[in-house]
């Protein structure tokens, strides 16, 4: 078993006031060490639920989630998370926001080392000189960069990104894609990224998984034939356009599976 993240036939049903709401109905996913998988699918199909399962914040009703050969039964410090909302703590400086996970994961680490590590990451994403600023002084893109640093500061094995660039404008988003590639080559991790942006998915990931409408199953998997760092121009090649076309087609099928969701 060489997959670092191994999700086997996972099922999950939420118990709500209105009754049972099946969200995941047999999701399979395998990510090798150092791999980067993008998950796309119709709105509300349970993509975020999937990330919470990997992070150990939720337990599946059936099926298993394994990380590095260990069954996930609760949260682990070897996971880092970043969300669409950067959720920076406004009362802390940018530097103190980034060191937050270290306070929990490595409470004994000397402060100087924590700061050193945070500064190194901030420099990597282009936030050098902003360490002592308040989050409210940063732009949306910068906040997201800081949030990315926070999710990586404790050197997690697994990085979970839940639509990290979803709220940014198109140009800022492309900047962050390139930052993300740089980060990936300097700070190795195994990643799962939820996204609604198909171009983002093929630009960053090695593999794109299409989830069906709710209750979700793994509907389609696409290997991205590109290796290593990519150039934005790649997205405008016939090869890319063909991949995007196929993914679009699969999403349409996914929306069709659950007619209530199709119009959304």
């Amino acid at each position: 078993m060489d997959a670092l993240i191994d999700i086997r036939d996972v099922k999950l049903t939420y118990e709500t006031k209105g009754g049972r709401l099946p969200v995941l109905d047999g999701v399979d996913m395998r990510v090798p060490e150092g791999g980067f998988v993008a998950v796309v699918g119709p709105s509300g199909c349970g993509k975020s639920t999937l990330t919470r399962l990997i992070a150990g914040l939720l337990e599946p009703n059936a099926g298993e989630v394994w990380l590095h050969g260990e069954r996930v039964t609760g949260p682990k410090s070897s996971v880092g998370m970043a969300f669409q909302n950067p959720v920076l703590l406004e009362w802390r400086s940018v530097l103190r926001n980034v060191t937050l996970p270290l306070e929990l994961v490595a409470p004994r680490m000397p402060k100087r080392e924590k700061d050193e590590r945070a500064r190194q990451l901030l420099a990597l994403v282009g936030l050098e000189g902003f360490e002592d600023k308040r989050p409210s002084e940063l732009s949306g893109g910068m906040r997201q960069r800081a949030s990315l640093c926070r999710s990586l500061v404790h050197k997690p094995e697994v990085l979970i990104l839940d639509e990290p660039f979803g709220a940014l404008d198109a140009f800022t988003r492309e900047d962050l894609w390139q930052t993300m590639q740089k980060v990936k080559s300097e700070e190795p991790f195994t990643g799962v990224m939820i996204t609604h942006d198909l171009r983002e998915s093929i630009f960053l990931a090695d593999e794109v998984i299409v989830m069906s409408g709710r209750p979700a199953v793994t509907q389609y998997t696409m290997e991205i034939p590109w290796k290593g760092e990519r150039d934005l121009d790649r997205l405008y090649t016939p090869e890319a356009i063909e991949m995007l076309g196929e993914l679009r087609h699969q999403i349409q099928i996914a929306q069709g599976r659950s007619p209530r969701e199709a119009g959304v």
């Binding site: 919470r52 992070a55 150990g56 914040l57 609760g74 949260p75 682990k76 410090s77 996971v79 880092g80 998370m81 969300f83 909302n85 959720v87 703590l89 406004e90 009362w91 937050l100 996970p101 306070e103 929990l104 994961v105 926070r150 404790h154 979970i160």
Partner: peptide, 27 residues
């Protein structure tokens, strides 16, 4: 408190008290 605020610490295995002390209370 938005659930994401809780999740950034809960995903690291923080206790309810830690989340309260470091995030909920100052917020």
């Amino acid at each position: 408190l938005e659930p994401e605020y809780r999740d950034i610490l809960a995903s690291l295995g923080a206790s309810r008290f830690t989340i309260f002390w470091k995030i909920a209370l100052p917020k």
